[in-house]
Design a protein around this nucleic acid. Sequence first.
DNA 1: GGCACATAGTTGACGCCTAAACTATTGATG
DNA 2: CATCAATAGTTTAGGCGTCAACTATGTGCC
Lengths: 172, 172
Amino acid sequence: MADLAGKRAMLKAADRSDLETRMSDEHHQSLKLWLRLLACANLIEAEVRGRLRAEFDTTLPRFDLLAQLERHADGLKMSELSQRLMVTGGNVTGITDQLESEGLVVRESDPADRRAYTVKLTPAGRRAFARMATAHEEWVVELFAGLYAGEKEQVYRLLAKLKLSLEKEKKK
Amino acid sequence: MADLAGKRAMLKAADRSDLETRMSDEHHQSLKLWLRLLACANLIEAEVRGRLRAEFDTTLPRFDLLAQLERHADGLKMSELSQRLMVTGGNVTGITDQLESEGLVVRESDPADRRAYTVKLTPAGRRAFARMATAHEEWVVELFAGLYAGEKEQVYRLLAKLKLSLEKEKKK
DNA sequence: GGCACATAGTTGACGCCTAAACTATTGATG
DNA sequence: CATCAATAGTTTAGGCGTCAACTATGTGCC
């Protein structure tokens, strides 16, 4: 993988060994897979965004933040939200500000660490999320209805492997 | 799928038939798959963005636009770019403005339709893209190296099916 | 010709997201 | 205990992306 320019030169020399043919195909294959993965993710995301907007006048990031809090009833630190949502801290600050001003979440200051807050759902936040979550779940099921359960399982398993290797790669 | 509230009520009645259990599992399965798909796409995208920025001081949308033009040597209309990149026209306008001011692309007015432009790579744009494309391809191969070729093929095939069904769903 | 409607592209307002700089607090180490 | 690095969170500047409103041009129909 390191010496692609060299490999290209050799290909031009019209002396394609099996190894090189395989490399080139694999390049093409990975690229195609990447584009398709991205396309699928974008199509689904666009659909979910649109419906959240149309039916609940809210956005995906807001929904995701509420979902995290619903899953952790004792609240989450800003930094934990940042990790779980895979976005930067500054971003969490902004979204939390909005949700707080809408009365859906509260920042509770942590007695043990005066730098930190614990963000929690308010009762209104819990109600609002419950309504949305039901609809959201149906949408997702509907969007994946084109695959059989076995196929979904297969993709899920393979993406698990991919995700692990990506996270390992990142650590390096 | 349409009567989830009703199904929930039945579940509460502690009378879970096989059908309902399967439904609930499938809900869970689709949601999990969606979250994982999104996570993988985001991890890869973040990695590619970071490297494009670090090594070429550019961004993914700019790169994607150049890639489309490279693939269509006779140029593309703004509207075609918008479709192929799966973003809105307004967005394409902004990115094209930047690339044009950097001298990497040009807008040529279409003699047959005075509303339309054809966007083309300049020689400088072609050179800049060529350098980046080689590196980009290597990165993607590297990022997908955690899967065997057969596994990549499998995911690719299943995502093709998913993509088709998503596009059909959207048309409705 | 003239009117209505569609299409190509741009603009403006706004939200998401990042990186980098900043403040405040904590904790570890001499 | 004093200092210095690490951590929690916020702010700022800027790019990406959307939608909706807008301009200008093309098209079809009478």
